[in-house]
Amino acid sequence: MSEGLTASKARNIFYGGSLFFLVVFGALTVHSHIYAVNTSTDAEGLTESVVHGKRVWEENSCINCHTLLGEGAYFAPELGNVWVRYGGRDDPEGAREAIKLWMQSQPTGIEGRRQMPQFNLTDDELDALADFFKWVSEIDTQNWPPNDAG
């Protein structure tokens, strides 16, 4: 600590500087919020079914095994691009059926394999979940993940 710096000077720097950075952060948040709504996500396509799918995602706490855009539990595959991985861009109906079939056939019970629980979702819920995955896969994520493996 230099001799010139007193505790009260340090205090003033702390309060003043923190306020400054808080304001800058707030302003950038406002801009990012507007950008997210208008540019990087499909606000039009955020249908009731997608919102329902997000609710299904939350009610079953998928995030505590999987990751979504890289955030979550690292125990099970990334799902932000599961729609793409299942070929949804070329064959949406095929991807939807494959995701639903996967969900319905859990758990595999195979010894030594990670087990996904059976969540007993209705057909509506499964469709909503697939719609949610499709919507998420279309977010402009600056080209993340690097490949389809997620």
């Binding site: 340090a10 500087g17 923190s18 990012s32 950008y35 990087s40 890289g70 600056q142």
Partner: peptide, 21 residues
Amino acid sequence: ALALFTGLLGTGHHYYWIGTP
């Protein structure tokens, strides 16, 4: 002071790949 000067905008390291600018 160091903690908040770096930490507030440091939040940006979570905003790389989630649809933010």
